[in-house]
């Protein structure tokens, strides 16, 4: 047909499924290691994981993290260690979601969620303070009024969302590489990156721990 083959192509598309989704009423599944906004995780007993070491702030290429540590009060400690994150702020007008803070964190306190749909109307809202970043008593991210969430989009907010996994090295395969979390427990080990092998069962069972 030559010049007129365009007609056949266009009419054939009518009967094919649409590429466009019905966003924002429904969303596509996001990639497993999607970099969204951060949360500050807690241990299964409710203690905060952050120890105020400021490594995240140090490594941040966009200088968007501000941390100040303080000694734990002896009678009511916030974190299991000696110190805790007294001030923790992330400026999302600067954050480039590179996940280097997650890499740097020695206690898996800061991880990224898959949430990214913000529409703040002022700069103050763009700066997430510690009370907004830390997970709630169910271990879920706290929803801010300007964030668009659907359903259980906030489900995957914890340590296994690291940018690079220790499972990439042979000696870590099938091993759980992170501590337990509030509301989630100990997550199963990551599946092998070798697609020919099936996922390996976790070596340790998550334990039920009462909230402290």
């Amino acid at each position: 047909m030559g010049k007129f083959s365009g007609f056949r192509i266009t009419i054939a598309q009518v009967f094919k499924p649409k590429v466009t989704g019905d966003y924002p009423n429904s969303k596509r599944p996001k990639p497993e290691r999607f970099h969204g906004r951060h949360v500050l995780n807690r241990y299964e007993d409710g203690m905060e994981k952050c120890i105020g070491c400021e490594l995240c702030a140090g490594v941040c290429p966009a200088n968007c993290i501000y941390v100040r540590g303080a000694d734990n009060p002896p009678d009511s400690p916030v974190s299991p260690g000696e110190r805790y994150g007294f001030v923790y702020e992330i400026n999302y007008l600067r954050c480039i979601h590179c996940d280097l803070c997650v890499e740097a964190c020695p206690t898996e306190a800061i991880t990224e969620t898959k949430l990214f749909e913000f529409s703040f109307t002022n700069r103050q809202d763009a700066i997430y303070t510690k009370s907004e970043l830390v997970v709630d008593d169910q271990g879920r991210a706290q929803r801010q009024p300007w964030e668009l969430w659907l359903g259980d989009e906030d489900d995957q907010t914890s340590g296994w969302m690291r940018a690079t996994a220790s499972a990439g090295q042979a000696e870590f395969e099938g091993k759980v590489g992170w501590s337990g979390e509030l509301g989630v427990g100990v997550r199963a080990a990551e599946p092998s990156q070798d697609k020919t092998r099936t996922a390996i069962a976790p070596t340790s069972e998550p334990e039920e721990v009462a909230l402290g």
Binding site: T10, I11, Q13, V14, K18, V19, T20, D22
Partner: peptide, 10 residues
């Protein structure tokens, strides 16, 4: 709508 159909859009 029809052009969208022909381009796999909504």
């Amino acid at each position: 709508k029809v052009i969208a159909d022909m381009q796999n859009r909504i």
